[in-house]
């Protein structure tokens, strides 16, 4: 029994997602440990992003259960919730593989939009705010402070009033993480956060993720191709291939798993049969 099975923040149980005749994810089960950085890896088209979309409600899974255990003890069945409720109530936040920022809004505004729900309550669903009641002003200042905190953490504070579309690629990636953190998540899902980053930026990302996990107790689930990120920071790695889990364990365990080597790294043509036999595919 591994640590992530003792007190999982997210339990994925028998998750299946079919698109017509295509089974993108088939009977996938794994746990995301509380406070862990869990990596979901696999070759292109393995169904990683589909799993993400199921967890964050953008797809409704064909079969299976997704149980989110909040630290407060509340349980949420994500497969039954509307996508925006998953962020609002179950506190699962996500970023996107192809960055989705509000390009025409400033960086600060992007982070303010992320705090929409608490601010809506503070403004008495706009009415109080419109009348200028004090509660909203206070919350607004607090929201700006939260935004500033994350801007400092992501080194974007100097550019707070710049439109998000003007940022360079690496900054946009960091801003998306900051924006997701502004929703106050307990589980942060990152879809290829290191894609397109140079080695230095990649290193900074590692530091940022470690910080998020350590200081905020936020569990992180990430999809990543960059093995330097995966092997360095993750506590737990789940490997998918053709929608099926082929390995699940610590980075060291996964690295040496022949299933993974065969699926992920590939083998020489003349070794295929031999490896397949060892692995037991044939």
């Amino acid at each position: 029994m591994s640590t992530w099975d003792n007190n999982p923040v997210l339990k994925v149980e028998h998750l299946t997602m079919r698109f017509g005749g295509l089974t993108a994810v088939g009977d996938l089960s794994f746990n995301v440990g509380r406070g862990d950085i869990t990596a979901l890896i696999g070759p292109n088209g393995a169904g990683k992003t589909t799993v993400f979309n199921c967890i964050t409600g953008f797809y409704k899974p064909t079969e299976g259960r997704l149980v989110m255990n909040r630290s407060s003890g509340d349980k949420h069945l994500l497969e039954r919730m509307a996508d925006f409720k998953i962020t609002a109530d179950a506190k699962v936040a996500r970023t996107f593989q192809n960055i989705r920022l509000f390009g025409g809004m400033t960086i600060l505004e992007n982070l303010m939009v992320a705090q929409h729900n608490p601010l809506m309550v503070a403004s008495n669903w706009t009415i109080g705010g419109l009348l200028g009641l004090g509660g909203y002003k206070k919350s607004n200042v607090e929201a700006i402070e939260t935004a500033k905190y994350w801007l400092e953490r992501t080194d974007l504070i100097d550019r707070a009033d710049v439109p998000a579309a003007d940022l360079c690629y690496g900054d946009q990636r960091r801003l998306e993480i900051a924006r997701a953190m502004c929703t106050g998540p307990e589980l942060l899902c990152l879809d290829e956060p290191a894609a397109g980053l140079n080695p230095k930026e990649s290193l900074e990302l590692n530091t940022l993720l470690q910080f998020i996990r350590k200081e905020h107790g936020t569990s992180v689930l990430l999809i990543e191709h960059d093995m330097s990120v995966v092997m360095e920071i993750s506590d737990h790695v789940v490997v998918l291939d053709y929608g099926v889990k082929i390995s699940d364990g610590t980075p060291e365990f996964v690295k040496n798993d022949p299933h993974v080597i065969a699926a992920y790294l590939g083998v020489e043509d003349d070794e295929v049969e031999q490896v397949e036999e060892e692995v037991g595919i044939v």
Partner: peptide, 17 residues
Amino acid sequence: RAWEALREDEIACRALG
């Protein structure tokens, strides 16, 4: 702000709750 965010990117809005 939510209106303007909606104009910018609806999917991102949903991901922010």
